[in-house]
Design a protein around this nucleic acid. Structure first.
Lengths: 216, 216
DNA sequence: CTCGTAATGCGACTTGAGTCGCATTACGAT
DNA sequence: ATCGTAATGCGACTCAAGTCGCATTACGAG
């Protein structure tokens, strides 16, 4: 079993040509990028520092990642794979509150929040980073949309409700304050955002069947 | 009257010591910064280019503004003074829709949106820029809160409703997509965000009297 | 009109980012 | 075990950002 006598390609080599060193270098570099961006923030994140920490040469990073942009994008893509804990209280409003509370507690804690804050801030600059950010949030939305889909199955929400849109509505005020307006974030705001999203979802605002929504 | 024979300080010199040249230089520099950030985007915004366009020396910019950060912060502070058109349709939902539509149309238009997008993106990086951004959005919120206050006066919203919070709730999903998740923005999203905010406001979610909001 | 002072102009200098050509190493296959 | 190839290591080089000391200019006061 361990000895592969067949000439068939082994399934454990996903990379086209290069062997296992590239993968090892990549892992080191991604790890070093996360550590550096956590320590120094985005400003002060230099390719040389990452190269030194990762134990590889500067030119290698420029060749494979193109610069700081690619490093951040790769680190973000790696982080996107790790799943978040998803609440299941049996009630949409409570689930959304848990989600926004989780977001709040992560980003409000200087220790846990430093890395994602620096990472997201960094990703907003280059095209590669922006694409990685899009993919990151798409994955988050897709995953978290399950709480809304369960609510639909429960009959709590109208059929056809866009679950990702519900999640976006609940979390947008938090990210807005964190990354756009720069206003302080508190638990109360997180709760209100969840409640508002639950209210709107129950009203059918996120169901495509509602054509104009003239509730005036 | 036009001749000031009195030794009293003239009211038209807000600057402490220096005369009118500093103000002239500042106006030139702010104008040049806006032009540069609009053309080149934030990346590619160099102090030298701004200096050349403004007709002043590089060192002067570094001395007075400290770098790109200060330039952006000053340009943003200047832009914050210009008021937005505020709708007054007599209905909160309609007013909020107008506001989000305005935001949408500005940022969706590559011509009109380029400058504010670049400016806001640029401001997110430095401390000075972040402070300017905070002040910028605080001014916007304070100004736009009037639509909610009118709704309170009309009896459409409960007394004590936080008008700025209503505006934030309405616009947050737009800014979230534009500057955080990077997802595309459309008119429909703008409308839904306004409707959701109006709904939440009518439910009293933004009134401090509501202690826990157990609507479960 | 003259003068003192603060702001600006000016150019050289330092520093770090990013690039390039070539030598070397490690992987994969025969 | 040996070899071809791709990836990496290496150092020098270019270039733009940012700093500094000093000369010059413009403003305001008497």
């Amino acid at each position: 079993m361990t000895e592969a006598t067949h000439p068939a390609p082994e399934p454990r080599t996903p990379t086209p040509r290069p062997g296992g060193r590239s993968a090892r270098v990549r892992a080191e570099v991604v790890s070093a990028t996360l550590a550096e961006v956590t320590e120094k923030g985005y400003d002060g994140l230099s390719v040389e520092a990452v190269a030194t920490r990762a134990g590889v040469h500067k030119a290698t990073l420029y060749r494979r990642w193109g610069g700081v942009d690619g490093l951040v994008a790769d680190a973000l893509a790696t982080s996107a794979d790790q799943p978040w804990p998803l609440p299941d209280t049996g009630d949409l409003q409570q689930d959304l509150r848990r989600i926004t509370q989780e977001v709040f507690s992560v980003f409000a804690d200087p220790e846990r929040g430093r890395t994602p804050i620096a990472l997201i801030s960094a990703a907003q600059r280059s095209d590669a980073g922006a694409a990685a950010l899009r993919a990151f949030f798409a994955a988050r939305h897709h995953q978290a949309a399950e709480v809304a889909e369960r609510a639909v199955a429960r009959g709590e929400l109208p059929a056809g409700t866009d679950g990702a849109e519900v999640v976006r509505a609940a979390t947008a005020p938090l990210y807005y304050r964190l990354f756009v307006s720069g206003e302080p974030l508190d638990a109360r705001t997180a709760e209100r955002a969840a409640d508002a999203a639950a209210l709107a979802a129950r009203a059918g605002l996120f169901a495509p069947t509602t054509t104009t929504t003239e509730q005036n």
